[in-house]
Simulated scan of single mutants.
Amino acid sequence: MKTSDKYHKWVEWSEEDQVYIGKCPDLITGIHGDDPQQVYSDLCEVVEDVIRHLESKKSSLPFPQVRPMRDVA
C-alpha cells in the first residue's frame, strides 16, 4: 500500500462555487475543477507531492484521521 492510500480523498460538487471540489483534509485544503475524474486524479497527484515534500523535509506525516462514514447497522 502506498502512503497516500492511508489518507481519505473525495470529490464533491459545490453548488455555491459551481465546480467539483477535491478534498484530503488530513493533508491539504482542496482543489477544484469542472471534471470530477480529473479533479480526483489531480488531487491524488497533489497528495503525493505533499507527502514527498514533508518526507524530504524530514517532517512527520500527520496521522490519517478523516474516515468515510460507515453504516453501523
Rank of each mutant, 00 (worst) to 15 (best):
R67W: 01
V46Q: 13
V72M: 08
Q18V: 01
S60V: 03
V39W: 10
E12N: 03
Q38H: 08
R67Q: 11
E12D: 05
P25E: 02
D34M: 11
V19R: 13
E48A: 11
P68A: 10
P64D: 08
D49A: 14
V50G: 04
R70G: 03
P62W: 06
H32N: 13
Y7V: 00
T3G: 01
D34Y: 11
Y40M: 15
W13M: 07
S4N: 02
P68S: 10
S56K: 11
S59W: 08
S41A: 15
R67N: 07
G30E: 04
D5I: 03
L43G: 03
G33E: 13
I28M: 14
A73V: 09
I21E: 04
P36C: 08
Y20A: 05
H32Q: 15
L61D: 00
Y40S: 10
H8W: 06
D49I: 06
E16M: 09
E15H: 10
S59F: 10
P62D: 08
S4G: 00
Y20M: 07
V39R: 09
L27R: 07
P25K: 04
K58Q: 13
S14M: 08
I21T: 02
R70A: 08
D49E: 14
C24R: 00
D49N: 15
M69P: 01
L61Q: 00
I51E: 03
S60K: 13
V11W: 12
K2I: 06
P36W: 06
S59V: 01
C24M: 02
E16L: 13
Y20Q: 08
L27C: 07
V39M: 12
Y40R: 13
S4H: 01
G30Y: 04
K57H: 10
W13H: 06
G22T: 02
P68M: 09
I31R: 09
K2D: 13
G22C: 03
R70F: 04
C24E: 01
S59L: 09
S4M: 02
Q37P: 00
C44W: 06
H53I: 12
P68C: 07
V46E: 14
A73E: 11
E15I: 02
Y20E: 05
V11N: 10
V47C: 12
S41H: 14
D71S: 12
Q18G: 06
Q38G: 03
S41M: 12
S60N: 10
D26N: 05
